[in-house]
Design a protein around this nucleic acid. Sequence first.
DNA 1: ATGTGTGAATTTATTCACAGCT
DNA 2: AGCTGTGAATAAATTCACACAT
Lengths: 205, 205
Amino acid sequence: MVPKPALERLCRIYTSLEEMDTAASVYASSRELEDMTGIPAHTLRKDISYLDQPGPGGGKYRVERLMAVLEQTLGLKRRPKVCVAGLGPLGQLCLKMLCSRREFEVVAGFDANINVIELTESDVDLFPSYELPAVARARGIELAVLTVADGEVEKTAARLYDGGVRGILNYTGVTVPPEYGFDVRSVSLFEELRILAAGLRAAEK
Amino acid sequence: MVPKPALERLCRIYTSLEEMDTAASVYASSRELEDMTGIPAHTLRKDISYLDQPGPGGGKYRVERLMAVLEQTLGLKRRPKVCVAGLGPLGQLCLKMLCSRREFEVVAGFDANINVIELTESDVDLFPSYELPAVARARGIELAVLTVADGEVEKTAARLYDGGVRGILNYTGVTVPPEYGFDVRSVSLFEELRILAAGLRAAEK
DNA sequence: ATGTGTGAATTTATTCACAGCT
DNA sequence: AGCTGTGAATAAATTCACACAT
């Protein structure tokens, strides 16, 4: 079983591998990856050793192969099905970004306001919020990007749960109710800045 | 010295306290906070015990007091000085959100494109990117919200470093170069979704 | 010679359990 | 009686160090 912090680091590593010019550098050592990611080389090797098939014992990692193994073990190749709940400016931005790459399958967008749904242009099917549970179930949505107004988080969480959604990327400023057992990653502007501020303060002392 | 994971949880706790109706509930027990945050009661008590002055031994926490102590110990009361680098749609959104509350002192916005600077309406002073180091130094900016295009991250990071900025909230899709020793929190749409996807996959097995 | 893979050692974080306060 | 605060016990993650592959 791979430790959760290792899982996060592996995703960071994947991001860094993506940034590499695959043509220019076919191989990368753990030391080189350390310089790119900031993750110490030994931690990084340990993390990679959790994968089903790590590198080939001796010699550097073959970038392409490593990415393939990461995609495999981390389940990235499956194109997980994702929706966007809340189509304000931020939600629309997320929708656009998600559509700009093939990585995830963007299955639906939801908003409480029907006008928004009619006025928004998108390749993705848009629905009023109350249809969320039915649509999510019918289409097998696994992940949601939560960009609703703070006041709607509670109701939306309940609907996502009814729809069988398992993981939430929470862009709102409030806490996703924990009782549903979602896997949540929170990305609140203020909370993240607070953590940074607290870190600075802690470093000083 | 307070462990870093504890620090993050304390910030989450602070967020949840904020959400409480302070008039309605003056006191909160660790158990009640568990229900709100999802953090187990004993973890939460331990975390709070790291603070300079935790609660009053017996009885529940006084919400107002606990928030005050958190603000104190986490350095939130100082109104840390923050800037936004990159004034595309996301950057402008962040700028607006930051200005809507008094919590941080929003000191400046930066963009490579001078037209953007002239056309954007904001209470905050806006500058072209090359002035970043000088302005950041002159105004004592500590934190930056990084919302530039992916291709500009490297150059911007160098400028932030020259400006004496210590922490970065990274909204871009690429890694902030680690060599400057920034305290970074990354909030990349794709990377976060990948972590969620990997988590689901790991849970299945 | 250089660089990975991994068990063992060490460090760090979480959980427990209970003394002490209200 | 109920709840916090915290040292001690447990669990988890990181770092080390070296065998082994290229």
